[in-house]
């Protein structure tokens, strides 16, 4: 992950696009300064919220009238599913910015997003399986919902592998962005698979028209857990992006240093 590419990467600061709007955040120097103070707060906030959410979900929330204690798997499974899909939507936006506006930070963000996205999707599948075995009576079924989430997992893994498969980072980023955008058609399929096709998986409880089909005693800890997991996900992706930006500066700085010493000799 941290091995420097043999080719010289696209210089960051010198090509930072001019102009206002979105491109104000395209300047890696400004990005590093802005996020330097933000990151420790993000880690801390994630720990506090997730700690509270975990205690609420495991100790202070009621069991379900028919699932019993197994309902507590839901407090991991549902945030992982939302993060897997929300993260992929973020990857699609980054890929669009990378392809159309050649935004250098978007390339890095996409590259660092996919391992974390693959992990949350794997956790979504694993926790769903652990819930399905005692509740449905099976670990897995090839219904439209589960199959489409498995496809999402392969998209994440495929993207992570593809952007790292090229010697030239820019070509890897381009190929990954195209894959990510093609894969984005899977998102609506996942979301509405339970409504379009009859599936073993139940339909949405929280994000449905009308009142959530979940008692507030379970809904509130679910929301706290979701916020906590999202903050942690954001913190670890942001740390990876910052590290990647700094590694690039490091390579360019070392290159410049070597060139200067060569000139002096």
């Amino acid at each position: 992950m941290s091995t420097p590419a043999p080719s010289s990467p696209r210089p960051l600061a010198s090509t930072a696009p001019r102009g206002g709007g979105l491109h104000r955040f395209a300047n890696p120097g400004r990005f590093l300064r802005l996020t330097d103070r933000l990151l420790p707060w993000l880690w801390g906030l994630a720990a506090v919220v997730l700690g509270a959410g975990t205690a609420w979900a495991l100790l202070f929330s009621p069991p379900d009238w028919q699932q019993g204690e197994t309902v507590r798997i839901m407090y991991v499974h549902v945030p992982m599913a939302w993060l897997a899909m929300g993260g992929y939507a973020g990857l699609a936006v980054a890929s669009l910015m990378s392809l159309v506006w050649r935004h250098p930070l978007a390339d890095i963000a996409a590259r660092e997003l996919s391992p974390a996205g693959a992990m949350v999707t794997a956790l979504c599948l694993a926790t769903g399986s652990l819930w399905g075995r005692p509740m449905w009576g099976t670990w897995w079924a090839w219904d439209a919902r589960m199959t489409s989430v498995l496809v999402l997992f392969f998209l994440w893994v495929g993207h992570a592998a593809l952007v790292r498969a090229f010697d030239e980072e820019e070509r890897g980023a381009r190929a990954g962005a195209i894959l990510a955008l093609i894969g984005a058609v899977n998102l609506p399929v996942i979301k509405w698979s339970v409504d379009w096709f009859n599936t073993l998986h139940q339909t949405a409880s929280v994000t449905r028209i009308g009142a959530p089909g979940m008692h507030t005693g379970m809904l509130y800890p679910l929301l706290v857990c979701t916020i906590g997991f999202t903050l942690l996900f954001a913190a670890l992706v942001l740390a990876q992006v910052r590290a990647a930006v700094m590694e690039r500066r490091l390579r360019q700085g070392q290159l410049a240093q070597a060139r200067r010493q060569e000139g002096a000799a």
Partner: peptide
């Protein structure tokens, strides 16, 4: 099953957060 599910999440996020923090610090 509840313990394994939460344990997997703790393991996955723990390892990734540790790797990210270490790489960032380095």
């Amino acid at each position: 099953h509840v313990a394994i599910a939460w344990g997997l999440a703790a393991l996955g996020f723990g390892i990734m957060a540790w790797l990210a923090a270490r790489r960032h610090a380095a």
